[in-house]
Structures are given as structure tokens and as C-alpha cells.
Nucleic acid binder design. Structure first.
Lengths: 349, 349
DNA sequence: CTGTTAGCGCGTTCAG
DNA sequence: CTGAACGCGCTAACAG
């Protein structure tokens, strides 16, 4: 029923081995023979059997990309960049690699499941994006998996995620969330703000912690008390931003600025402030993080920290493919850039 | 080096076949035996070899999800919903399926490449999302691929894409883009608008064409001339919306409404109007399509057509997994819902 | 319920 | 540069 390598070989009047060689392009084959084989492939509409080929070669053309939330452009942009470097020639068997993105939904279990699935498939490489969950047992489980993947020859790259000390073979491209958070809050303090609310992401996430640490460092540097009542945790979505802002306002109506964990959350914060009859930035300044495409369209445009998501993703993809030298020590820090726009201004008097 | 099924069998003192049976859970196995096998699996830290298993079983646990733009939440939301129905038990081999999303970037070649790669992997199912490119040769090539996939036992589902007449085995969940577009423009006409600009998506895309057809149908129903100068094509991103709006304004400064191909484009349109000193909706009304999460945060909130992306995706996922009956005739139309919000109002006098 | 026996389709030695 | 032979690790009959 289904046409196999042998069928192609028969039609091209060569041995199966030769067909395999032209398909993989790893061995010298006479031009005329190659020609004949390729024609046979075309005539028969032959498609290589991936599993068989992976079994024999003990490696596959699959490259996994793990994201926390595929509906969030933050991950979408990185995933697109990574995948763009993975597709195209370079793999075995006709030269196309299959870059696939897996959505963990931020769930530790699903993260491990996907890692196992990818291990089962003997993936050529795996790229993990975004913040990690800090729960110790889970972190250890992930590190163990990464080590095993590495041992099995799978290249592991972390993109926008802190290095995993227990899995040293994983190359890490880390975002400087701490520095970015600090810059942002410094900017607000510089404008004169002293009562700043902070909407943090989910607890137990590295991204959340680092951004918050940056914020606190800035406060500390300017002798501003870090009132715990001015920090609220929530998910990385607009609704969390909306509700957290209402809560912050309830706790302290005299706030003059709200710093959000990311741009999406900031959007929710803006909505809440508007509904409360507060003007941005006249009454309350708002700042986000990431500089996603829609941030510039907010009204007023969002002050935020731009992260080079595309560039970092592309680099991670290239490293995963072995087409770029890993950074020295296997770790590189990618900095953000403060984008000052209309949503922040001097505090009301 | 790497531990195989045989190693597990030896340790559990059973035959390899038995190990396979407990792992796949397809055959009855005595509880005590199963216990012993599972312990051995655990002790040895055994992970099934996917390629080997797929080769022997002539099918894999891979399910492909094709999207046009993974950085666009429109696709992200659908992909997340599809993937959520795919993961989890149900497949062979320990019961986890690997749902993977592939980003075509809207490129016909990459679409075909991914389809071939998925065919090569003997994917269990493939879900294609979003509008199709209408170029005839390409459409034929895709249809041919889909037919071949179907013949090879791969379940093919179209989600948010029109049916492919040449590939009848593909189940289609289609969005009523035409009806939605018509509703939207009817709403504007009902408010009193007569000079409406339309920012269409890329040409040769089914989504673009259907939405535009709906718009035109509404105009025709109210005897409003369809001036071709009032329609501009562009990509599905904010920049295209921004530039197209400037162009529309240049061609006809007396426009009272702008209908955009989708919400992202509408956001760009809003930005352009604001910069031109025009108020929304007092001077110009704006409408989008899709009702993505950020649309409600636009200022003013965007009037748009809500598409049940999550629901449709989940359903597509279930159908792909054989867990839900396909619609009669293999085709179902999913309607949108008009969401009237602040960005549309009566035209200025 | 369990063991035995054959392949699944291809990559890769080794000769020639 | 090309062919022959072997085995990758697992599943699917077939017996028992």
C-alpha cells in the first residue's frame, strides 16, 4: 500500500542503500544516479518514513519549543523566531527539521510530560522559554530531565529563563528581568513618585521574583519604604491587572503610580483606573514590561521595558541547531531597554 | 547505554511483549505482573522509544496544529484550546499524545513543508487553522496532501477554515466570516454611516475575501455605492491598519467610519486616526473583528465580532481525537456575535 | 493471561 | 561510487 524506500530503489534500478544516500545527502552519489533516484521519488510520490528513519539513525528531526502560554504574544513572538531558525534545510533526511511548539499552560506537570514526550521522540533539540516555576521538587525533576535529554544527545537551550545549575549542559539565554524592573521603578521615582503600587505575577515564578526584586532594589536605593500592602500577586493576564488595581486602590487611594508585571497586566490596570475615574498619567502613572506590539497603541502609550524577544528567540534557535556558538560559560544575559512613553508622568500634587 | 524494553523485561522477569502490553494498556495483564513491570520501569528510568514504537505500530502519537501566525493571539487562543484537548491520556504508549503547533507564517510553501513533515512522522491527526491561501495551484497541492494524509489514516480537521472540496475527508469547522462582516457593516449603516472605509487583509486569503464580501453585501443591501477607492488591502497587523487608514483618509477625508479586517488592524487604525486629530467615535467610528482579549481595553473599547475561538478549537481538538462526532456532512459553520462597544457611534453631521 | 516469533522501514557498516 | 547484510527497539499476530 504505502510506498517504501525499496519501491523507489526498484524503480530507479539501484539498491535501497543508494536511495537512502541521496535522500540524506551524506554520501557521495553520482549525479546521474541521484537524478534517477530523485525522479523515482517524484514519480512514486514517496515520503520518507520518519519513525523508521529515526529508529535506524537513533535521532530525529524533531525540535521541541516549550512555552508557558501560547495565547500570549510574549511567547508567540519568541516561538515564531525560534521556529524560523529551525525550519529549513539542515536536518537529516531531505533536510527539513520539524520545529514544534508545546503549550504547558504554566503547569509543571505538563512541562514534565512534554519533556518526556520529547525525550521519547528522541528530539534533536529542546528550547524552553519563559520563566520557570520555583517549586524545589519540580525544579529538580526538570533539571534531571534536562540532564537526561542532554545525555541522550538532545541539545537543550533555555530562552528567557534563568540557568539551571543542576543541568549545566543547558545553554541559557536569560532576560535581565531584575535590571529591567529596577530601571522602570527608578524612572518613576525620578519623576517624583513615592507611593507606588506593584502588581506582581504568580508567585513561585522566576520572572515574577526577579522583576519584583528589581522594583524593590530601586525603592531601597531611594530610601522608600517597601510597604507589603502595596504589592499584589496575580496571573499574567489583563483580568489580574484589573482586579489587582482595584485592590491596590482600596488599600491606598493615594497611590500615584502602578507598576505591572507585564504589559497585558498593565492594560488591565489602565482599565481599572479609567473606570475609577482616574486619568493616566495625570492622576496615576502606569508602567508595563515586555513592550509587546499592542503597548504602543494603549492610550496613552505604555511606558515599559522592551525585551528583544525576536532576537533572543532567533539566537536560541540557532544555538539549538548548532549554527551559532553558545555564549561563554553557556550563559548569556539579555538586557531590556526602558521605553518611556505617555503612561508615566510626574505625580499629582 | 540507553535502556530498552528488553532490559525492563529482564528485570521484571517477563517477556518484552508483556512490558509492551502494560505500557500500552491495550491488553489484559495480571495486576501483580503489571505492578512488577511498572516498578522495573521506574527503577530503570525507562522511556519508551517513540520512533521504534511508531514504526512497529505504523502510527504515531503526534498531532500537528498548523497556524498562520503564532504571535497572533487569534491563533494562539485556538492552538491552546486544540492542544488542551489533545494532551492527556488516550494515545498509545502510556497514553500521552504530543500535540504540537507549527507556524507557517502564512507562507504556502511552509504550509506544504509542514504537512509533508507531519506525513513523514505518520501523525495521528492534523488540524489546520485560519484562512487558506486561495492561489489555485497551491490549494490543489494542499488538497492533495490532505487526501494523502487521510488515506494514510491521519485524521484531518480544518478549524476556522473553509472546507476543501477536493479533500472531502477533512472535517471542517468554518467561521461565518461573511455573515459577521455583514452584521458589522449593517450596524454601522444602521447608525447612519454612508461613507465607510474598509481595511481588508492580504488578498488571496479566504478570510479576507469572506469578510469583505459580507461588508459589500451590507452596502449593497442599503444601496450604498461600493467605491473601490474606499477599500485598501494590507497584512493582518497593526502597522497595516495604521498605514491603510492614512491612505483612506488621504483618498477621502470625509469618511465617517473605518471597518478593519481584524482587531489588530483596527488598533492600528485607531492610532492613525488619533494622530490625525480625529476623535473616535465622534469623528470616525472604528470596528474590528475577532474580539481578541485586548479589544475591550482599547480606548474606546472596540466594536467587533466575537468569534468563539476557544470553543471552536476545543471542538476541533476533540474531533481530531475521535472523542466527538463530526458534524453532519463533515462541515459545521460557527457564527460570530456582534459586540457593540464604544468605538462606533452616530456619524458627525 | 503470557511467551515466541516475525517483521515494521530505514541507516549503516563492510566489501567490492 | 555502489550493493548486500544486519540490526535499531518495538508491536502484533500466533500459540500456549
Amino acid at each position: 500500500m504505502t510506498v517504501t524506500l525499496a519501491d523507489v530503489a526498484a524503480r530507479a534500478q539501484v539498491s535501497p542503500a543508494t536511495v537512502s544516500r541521496v535522500l540524506n545527502g551524506n554520501y557521495p552519489v553520482a549525479a546521474s544516479t541521484r537524478e534517477r533516484v530523485l525522479r523515482a521519488v517524484d514519480d512514486l510520490d514517496y515520503v520518507l518514513n520518519g519513525p523508521a528513519s529515526s529508529l535506524a539513525a537513533a535521532t530525529s528531526d524533531l525540535v521541541g519549543i516549550l512555552v508557558n502560554d501560547i495565547a500570549d504574544p510574549f511567547f508567540g513572538i519568541m516561538a515564531a523566531a525560534i521556529q524560523s531558525e529551525i525550519g529549513g534545510p539542515g536536518g537529516r533526511a531531505g533536510g527539513e527539521r520539524l520545529g514544534v511548539v508545546c503549550n504547558t499552560g504554566g503547569s509543571p506537570e505538563r512541562e514534565l510530560t512534554y519533556l518526556t514526550l520529547l525525550q521519547r521522540q528522541r528530539a534533536a533539540a529542546v528550547v524552553l522559554t519563559g520563566g520557570a516555576v520555583e517549586d524545589a521538587p519540580h525544579a529538580a525533576a526538570v533539571a534531571a530531565k534536562l540532564r537526561k535529554l542532554g545525555d541522550a544527545g538532545t541539545q537543550v537551550v533555555l530562552c528567557g529563563r534563568p540557568p539551571a545549575p543542576d543541568a549545566p549542559e543547558a545553554i541559557a539565554l536569560t532576560f535581565d528581568n531584575r535590571g529591567g524592573g529596577q530601571q522602570l521603578t527608578e524612572h518613576l521615582i525620578g519623576l517624583g513618585h513615592r507611593r507606588l503600587g506593584y502588581i506582581a505575577g504568580p508567585e513561585e515564578r522566576t520572572t515574577t521574583r526577579h522583576r519584583l526584586e528589581g522594583h524593590r532594589a530601586a525603592l531601597a536605593a531611594h530610601d522608600i519604604e517597601d510597604d507589603p500592602r502595596r504589592t499584589v500577586h496575580g496571573r499574567y493576564d489583563r483580568r489580574a491587572g484589573y482586579e489587582a488595581t482595584l485592590e491596590l486602590l482600596r488599600r491606598d487611594p493615594s497611590l500615584t503610580a502602578v507598576v505591572a508585571a507585564n504589559d497585558t497586566v498593565a492594560l488591565g490596570a489602565c482599565a481599572a483606573l479609567r473606570e475609577a475615574g482616574l486619568r493616566i498619567p495625570d492622576d496615576v502613572s502606569v508602567a508595563g514590561f515586555d513592550d509587546l506590539p499592542f503597548s504602543i497603541d494603549a492610550v496613552p502609550a505604555l511606558t515599559t521595558v522592551r525585551l528583544p524577544l525576536s532576537e533572543a528567540g532567533a539566537r536560541a534557535g540557532r544555538i539549538a541547531m548548532g549554527r551559532e556558538e553558545p555564549p561563554p560559560g553557556g550563559i548569556a544575559t539579555v538586557r531590556g531597554e526602558l521605553m518611556v512613553r505617555g503612561s508615566t508622568g510626574v505625580p499629582r500634587v
